[in-house]
Structure formats: structure tokens, C-alpha cells
């Protein structure tokens, strides 16, 4: 069972995660039809920028984060922004009923000058996330765990970050046992997705370079 402390922490993170949303004026543009490659590129850039802002708001609510060394806070956010963005879009793309928004977003991504070699791993990842049928608790915990990774570059006090991440891993592990008694590997599978997520840092920087060249 969860301890009281674990229940409170999970509820707190779930509450913060429910507010982790891109403002409507940005998403509304995603639904507009006009979409040349340039417009798609600008729209994706604006969406990514807006995502970083809401990611910081979510992260500020992670217990203990604001007590960390200020430069370590920046190192964690810089190190996880791309991964959190792809995990967040995977959540949207893996909804059982593809909504108008995800269809339009997929169309924009496929027609924005991004090279095919980066689109394939992206949608493979979205599919592998979708297969896990993750709940809001799993997405919120996995996002927090991704952000609070002690091994990001330029981090000075790794132990302090590990002390914040460890309780979240324990809650996620317990949550998986409670909710997936039939699938003892579920927790390991979730962590496996984090490894796959790390490859997007490399893809993303190449993608930006290819965009600049185009």
C-alpha cells in the first residue's frame, strides 16, 4: 500500500500535472488550416517555446525543486526540456481516439521540413508509449522522474537531486504493482521508455540543424 506521505506526494504531482498545459491561444493556432512548411515550422517553434514555459511551471511545483541550487535547477530543465516535450506529445498522440488536434499536429510535423529520418523514430516512440496505455499518474510521475535526473550534464549536487527522484521511483514502482498485478514487467517497461526518450536529445539537435540548412 501507499504510505500517507506517498499518497500526498502523488496527489500533489497529479495536481501540478493537470495544470501542465499549453495556453489555448497557442493550441488554437494548431487547428487553423493554412499550413505551409514555413508556417508549420513557426507554429512548432512557438509550441515548443510555450511548452518550455509550462514545463518550468510544473517543475517549480515538484517538492524540493526550488530548494536546489539555482544553476542546478537550470541544468535539470535544460537537460530534460526536449525529453519532456516528446513525452508530452507522446501522451497526446497515444490517446485512443485521435482527436482533431493530434491529426493536424501530425500533419504539421510531417510537412514542416523535418527530415523523414527524424519523423520515423518520433512516431515509433509515440506508438510504443501508446501500447503501454499509461494513466495520468504514470505520465505525471514519469515526467517528474525525467526532469529530476541526477545525471544531467553541468549538475553539481547530484545527491540532492537523487533524493528527490528516488521517492518518485518508489511510488511509480508501487503504483505499477498495484495497477498491473498481471504484468510484473510494467515498471521496467516504463523505465525502458525513458531510455528511448533520451535518444530524442540527439535527434532533436540534428533536426534543428537540418531545419536551419533547409
Amino acid at each position: 500500500e501507499f504510505t500517507q506521505k506517498q499518497q500526498d506526494l502523488l496527489r500533489h504531482i497529479l495536481d501540478a500535472f493537470s495544470k501542465y498545459r499549453i495556453p489555448q491561444e497557442v493550441t488554437r493556432k494548431l487547428l487553423q488550416q493554412r499550413s505551409s512548411a514555413e508556417e508549420n515550422f513557426l507554429l512548432l517553434t512557438e509550441t515548443a517555446t510555450s511548452h518550455v514555459q509550462v514545463l518550468v511551471e510544473f517543475t517549480k511545483k515538484l517538492p524540493g525543486f526550488q530548494m536546489l541550487d539555482h544553476e542546478d535547477q537550470i541544468a535539470l530543465l535544460k537537460g530534460s526540456a526536449v525529453e519532456a516535450m516528446f513525452l508530452r506529445s507522446a501522451q497526446m498522440f497515444s490517446r485512443r481516439i485521435p482527436c482533431q488536434q493530434s491529426e493536424l499536429l501530425e500533419d504539421r510535423i510531417r510537412h514542416s521540413g523535418i527530415a523523414e529520418e527524424y519523423i520515423i523514430p518520433m512516431f515509433n516512440f509515440y506508438r510504443s508509449i501508446g501500447e503501454l496505455k499509461m494513466t495520468q499518474e504514470e505520465y505525471s510521475l514519469l515526467t517528474a522522474i525525467t526532469i529530476l535526473s541526477p545525471d544531467r550534464s553541468f549538475v553539481k549536487n547530484r545527491e540532492a537531486i537523487d533524493r528527490l527522484q528516488e521517492p518518485l521511483l518508489e511510488i511509480l514502482q508501487k503504483y505499477c504493482k498495484l495497477n498491473h498485478p498481471d504484468d510484473p514487467q510494467h515498471f521496467a517497461r516504463l523505465l525502458g521508455r525513458l531510455t528511448e526518450l533520451r535518444t530524442f536529445n540527439h535527434h532533436h539537435s540534428n533536426m534543428l540543424m537540418s531545419w536551419r540548412i533547409n
Binding site: P23, L42, T45, E46, T49, S50, V52, Q53, V56, E57, K60, H70, Q73, I74, L77, K78, A81
Partner: peptide
């Protein structure tokens, strides 16, 4: 939108200080 040409770190620093324009 000025944020487009601000680097990732600038956006993070600004948001951390809670002064980004919503």
C-alpha cells in the same frame, strides 16, 4: 513573439523567475 529567438536557457531563466509573459 520574442521567445522564438531567445535561447532555451533564456526562456528557462525567465520562467524560473516567474516573469515570462503568459
Amino acid at each position: 513573439h520574442s521567445a522564438n529567438n531567445m535561447g532555451l536557457e533564456d526562456i528557462i531563466r525567465k520562467a524560473l523567475m516567474g516573469t515570462y509573459d503568459d
